[in-house]
């Protein structure tokens, strides 16, 4: 099993910190972005940046729920690191001239809904839910999108930044799967009961309603960028493979739910799933602006492309 020593992990995390100032954002190579790439890349980067930011908020909620001090500290660092990734990605956008002045790019509507949900309810969710969803988001979206980016973009600064980001993410995933397995230990019956009880929580249903279309929207965006969707699916299957490699991991009901859901997402022939979800994505676009959450939570404003402040 992915049994890692959390104390050693915390020490490793502390010693592996980097800053935006470590990268020369004005180094040559920005012009390697082709004109054709530019508009799609802009939308893509904005989504990516927001996903990192949303992931960061997820870790903040997990830090509150962590069962021991070491894990709590690790999550506190991960929260900051996800924010750092968002900052670095924003710095790349700045470098590529994709920012409208100093403005933060608008999140798409599905992300807006997710942000709203995270802000309102994530602190109330049990660690099991976030502990399972976050690795999925990380592996599917972060992992797949980053690989794709490095395959298509030649700018050396982009590679430099993502080498560091991926390094951090590998630690996030290590801990993610460790916790997934940790929570798989113990009485299955109690866990199943707890899971059912949590699923019945209307706050979680709202969360699912935000998360599910987000995945499909990201798939559409990825396809629009020219990435074969199989690459995304390959990453999502990785969740099932790594999370399910031990009995403990498989015994975690949330692992079961998330990975089964992943299978449905990957299977395009499953019309029973995709038709309504795609509809949800399209419907989200029709939500009039005035009905969208108008209040932007303060944590959203914390992103910055500037290495110094």
């Amino acid at each position: 099993m992915a049994n890692i020593d959390l104390d050693k992990m915390l020490a490793k995390v502390k010693s592996s910190q980097w800053a935006l100032a470590d990268i020369d954002w004005d180094a040559p190579g920005a012009d390697l972005i082709t004109e054709e790439q530019w508009p799609k890349l802009k939308a893509f980067m904005a989504d990516l940046m927001w996903i990192e930011h949303v992931g960061a908020r997820g870790f903040a909620a997990m830090a509150k729920k962590a069962p021991d001090d070491t894990l709590k500290q690790i999550y506190t660092y991960f929260h900051a690191e996800e924010q750092r990734h968002a900052n670095a990605e924003m710095a790349l956008m700045k470098r590529w001239g994709m920012l409208d002045g100093d403005e933060l790019p608008e999140p798409n509507k599905n992300l807006k809904l997710v942000i709203q949900w995270l802000d309102k309810y994530s602190d109330d969710m049990p660690l099991e839910v976030l502990g399972s969803v976050i690795p999925m988001l990380e592996i599917a979206l972060d992992g797949a999108l980053c690989t794709f980016l490095l395959d298509t973009v030649d700018d050396p600064v982009c590679h430099q930044a993502f080498a560091r980001i991926n390094d951090d993410e590998s630690r996030h995933l290590g801990v993610g799967f460790h916790v997934l397995e940790m929570q798989g230990r113990g009485d299955l019956y109690i866990k199943a009961l707890k899971t059912v009880a949590t699923v019945l929580d209307p706050r979680l249903i709202l969360g699912i309603a935000s998360y599910v279309p987000l995945l499909n929207r990201m798939r559409d965006n990825v396809v629009a960028m020219g990435l074969s969707e199989e690459k995304l699916y390959a990453c999502m299957k990785k969740f099932e493979r790594i999370g399910g490699r031990t009995a403990q991991g498989r015994r975690n009901p949330w692992y079961q739910i998330i990975s089964r859901h992943g299978r449905m997402v990957v299977n395009r022939d499953n019309r029973a799933y995709h038709a309504p979800v795609d509809l949800m994505v399209r419907l989200t676009d029709y939500i009039p602006e005035r009905l969208m959450p108008s209040r932007v939570p303060t944590w959203v404003k914390g992103i910055s492309y500037r290495p110094t402040a």
Binding site: W18, L20, G302, T308, A309
Partner: peptide
């Protein structure tokens, strides 16, 4: 994360001067 020549570097990658 650390204190640098000009200020404090936090783990979100920003150096506050």
């Amino acid at each position: 994360a650390r204190i640098a020549e000009n200020g404090v570097r936090t783990c979100d990658g920003i150096e506050h001067q």
